[in-house]
Deep mutational scan, measured.
Amino acid sequence: SEHYTFDGEEQAIRFMRDMEAKNLKYELQIHNGKYIIQVD
């Protein structure tokens, strides 16, 4: 699995939509205002 970190919500949402379009599962965590997305 890989981790991707985003500072902004818009970037994170765009990335998650992209993952959904590719049928990839992901998990979102928010730490200290950063959006951390783990992709299986």
Rank of each mutant, 00 (worst) to 15 (best):
K25R: 11
R17T: 06
F15G: 00
G33A: 03
E10F: 05
Q38I: 15
I30T: 05
R17G: 04
T5F: 11
N23K: 10
A12K: 01
A21L: 11
Y35F: 10
K25Y: 09
S1P: 12
T5P: 02
D18E: 14
E20G: 04
E10H: 05
Y26M: 06
I36L: 08
F6M: 03
E27S: 14
K25S: 09
M16A: 05
F15L: 03
T5A: 08
K22N: 08
H3I: 15
K22V: 05
L28T: 04
D7G: 04
Y26K: 00
N23I: 03
K34E: 04
L28E: 01
Q11G: 07
Y35S: 00
N23P: 02
F6H: 00
I37C: 02
Y4F: 11
T5K: 06
L24D: 01
R14P: 05
E20D: 13
H31F: 12
E10Y: 06
D40Q: 14
K34R: 09
M19L: 15
D40P: 12
D7K: 05
A12T: 02
Q29V: 13
R17C: 11
E27L: 12
Q29K: 13
E9V: 11
R14G: 07
R14K: 12
I36M: 07
N32K: 07
K22W: 07
G8L: 15
G8P: 01
R14W: 08
N23R: 08
S1W: 14
M16Y: 02
T5D: 04
F15N: 00
A21T: 08
M16R: 01
Y35W: 14
E20N: 06
K25P: 08
N23D: 07
I37Q: 00
Q29G: 04
M19P: 00
D7L: 08
M19D: 01
Q38V: 15
Y35R: 00
I37V: 12
K34Y: 09
M16D: 00
E20M: 08
K22G: 05
M16K: 01
N23F: 07
N32H: 08
A21W: 07
E9S: 06
K25E: 05
L28Y: 09
Q11A: 14
D18C: 15
G8R: 13
E20L: 07
Y35I: 05
Q11L: 09
H31Y: 11
D18N: 08
H3E: 11
E10W: 08
T5I: 14
L24H: 07
N32R: 06
F15S: 01
A21M: 11
Y4C: 06
I30R: 05
I37H: 00
E20H: 06
Q29M: 12
I36T: 07
K22S: 07
I13T: 09
Q29I: 14
F6P: 01
I13S: 07
I13M: 12
T5Y: 12
D18L: 14
M16W: 02
F6A: 01
R17S: 07
Y4N: 02
G33F: 03
R14V: 09
D18R: 10
I37R: 00
I30C: 11
K25D: 04
G8K: 14
L24E: 04
D40N: 13
D18G: 05
E20I: 08
Y26H: 03
E10P: 05
F6N: 00
H31V: 15
K22D: 04
I36R: 04
R17L: 12
H3S: 13
Y26L: 05
E9G: 03
I37M: 02
L28R: 01
Q11I: 06
D40K: 14
T5L: 09
E9P: 11
D7N: 07
Y26W: 08
A12D: 00
M19V: 06
N32C: 12
E9W: 15
I13A: 09
D7C: 12
M16N: 00
E27P: 01
Y26R: 00
Q11P: 07
A21F: 09
H31C: 14
H3W: 15
D40G: 12
E2I: 15
M16C: 08
E27T: 15
Q11K: 05
A12V: 04
M19N: 03
K25W: 09
E9T: 05
D40R: 12
F6R: 00
I13Q: 11
T5Q: 08
V39T: 05
N23S: 08
T5M: 11
K22E: 06
Q11T: 06
I30M: 08
Q11V: 06
H31K: 13
D7F: 10
E10R: 05
H3V: 15
E20K: 06
I37G: 01
E9Q: 08
K34W: 09
M19A: 08
M16Q: 02
Y26T: 08
Q29D: 05
L28F: 11
A21Q: 10
I36F: 10
E10L: 07
G33V: 01
L24Y: 09
Q38T: 15
K22L: 13
H31A: 11
F15V: 03
Y35A: 01
E10N: 05
K25H: 11
M19H: 03
S1H: 12
D40S: 13
I36W: 07
Q38D: 06
Q29S: 12
G8V: 14
M19I: 10
Y35H: 02
I36P: 00
V39S: 03
Y4H: 08
Y35T: 01
R17D: 05
F6S: 01
Y35P: 00
I36S: 05
I13F: 11
K22Q: 11
R14I: 11
N23H: 10
L28V: 12
Q29P: 00
D18Y: 13
S1K: 13
F6I: 03
M19R: 02
A12L: 05
M16G: 03
E9A: 10
A21V: 07
F15Y: 03
A21K: 10
K22M: 12
I13E: 09
H31I: 15
E2D: 11
Q38Y: 15
V39Y: 04
L28H: 02
H3D: 06
H31W: 11
K34D: 02
D7Y: 11
I30A: 03
Q11R: 05
R14L: 11
Y4M: 04
K25M: 07
I37D: 00
G33Q: 04
G8T: 15
L24K: 09
Q29C: 10
V39E: 02
E2Q: 13
F15I: 02
E9M: 12
M19G: 02
V39C: 03
N32A: 08
L24A: 06
Q11H: 07
N23L: 07
L24C: 09
Q29E: 09
I13W: 09
Y26V: 13
E27Y: 13
I13N: 11
I37A: 02
A12Y: 05
M16E: 01
Q38C: 15
S1G: 11
G8Y: 14
G8F: 14
M16T: 02
R14H: 08
E10Q: 08
F15E: 01
S1T: 12
H3G: 07
G33Y: 03
Y26G: 04
I37Y: 02
A21P: 02
E2S: 13
Y4A: 03
E27Q: 13
E20Q: 08
I36G: 01
R17Q: 11
E27I: 14
K25N: 08
N23A: 07
L24M: 11
V39A: 04
I30D: 02
E27H: 13
E2L: 14
A12I: 02
V39G: 03
A12S: 02
M16L: 08
I30G: 01
R14T: 08
H3K: 13
Y4E: 02
Y35C: 01
Q11Y: 06
E27W: 12
E20V: 06
T5H: 10
I30F: 09
D7S: 09
A21H: 07
L28M: 10
D40V: 14
D18F: 12
Y4I: 06
S1L: 12
S1Q: 12
D18M: 13
M16I: 11
N32L: 07
I30Q: 05
A21G: 08
F6K: 00
E10K: 05
K22A: 10
G8S: 15
Q29H: 13
E9L: 14
E9N: 04
K22I: 08
F6C: 07
L24W: 09
A21N: 09
Y26N: 01
N23T: 04
D7V: 07
I13Y: 12
Q11F: 07
E20A: 09
N23Q: 10
E2C: 15
I30Y: 10
N32M: 09
N32E: 10
E9I: 13
E9Y: 14
H3F: 15
T5S: 10
